[in-house]
């Protein structure tokens, strides 16, 4: 089985960056088996179709507007994902509806599709997560790990995770880019 954990959203749009942050955090805190690919999809739109084409299962991490208090977790599965993205619950207009639809035309719809999200507080130009969303990040990451485990994947917490560093350095790849110099 091959699984992709896909973070969606724009790091430059405040809470919209929570999906990307969660993907990076998942990799930092957990040891994942080889069949899992972490993908920071940003706001890549249709170009994502090719990156998801081989995935049997896709776990999306995203800011999800469902009308709850900021930081409220949400889980969607299967057809509900299609329905909710079509209704543009995701504030960044990533075009994920079109990604899913294009995948369907190519007969590449993943067998399993689950979204774990967090209700955003603020979405707009800027870098940083609001307090309720930042507080919900831990739970989102753990929920993602639990989801992968439920799929039968070996996901174990790392004994000695790298230090997190300030947001958004890890998400942007800033820490890695600096050490490469």
């Amino acid at each position: 089985m091959s699984a992709v954990v896909l973070g969606l959203g724009n790091v430059l749009m405040l809470d919209d960056g929570v999906g990307a942050a969660a993907v990076v955090e998942l990799g930092r805190r957990y040891r994942l088996p080889e069949e899992v690919t972490l993908l920071d999809g940003g706001v890549l739109g249709l170009h994502l179709v090719g990156l998801l084409a081989d995935a049997d299962s896709v776990l999306v991490l995203d800011a999800v507007r469902a009308g709850g208090a900021p930081g409220t977790p949400a889980r969607l599965e299967g057809a509900a994902v299609h329905a909710r993205y079509a209704a543009r619950i995701s504030p960044h207009e990533v075009g994920f509806t079109e990604v899913l639809a294009t995948a369907a035309v190519h007969a590449r719809t993943p067998r399993r599709l689950v979204v774990h999200g967090v209700e955003p507080e603020r979405v707009g130009p800027g870098v940083g997560l609001s307090a309720p969303v930042a507080a919900a990040l831990d739970r989102l990451v753990d929920a993602a790990a639990a989801e992968l485990r439920a799929w039968g994947l070996q996901v174990r917490p790392r004994d000695d995770p790298e230090p997190a560093g300030p947001y958004p350095d890890g998400v942007l790849g800033l820490t890695a880019a600096r050490s490469g110099a």
């Binding site: 724009n10 790091v11 430059l12 940003g42 706001v43 890549l44 739109g45 170009h47 990533v94 130009p125 800027g126 870098v127 942007l172 790849g173 800033l174 880019a177 600096r178 110099a181």
Partner: peptide, 21 residues
Amino acid sequence: NILVGRDPRDAWLFAQRICGV
């Protein structure tokens, strides 16, 4: 406005996020 005050060597990591494609 997001870039003002940051290290110029980091600017490209922010800049590549302004557009999805």
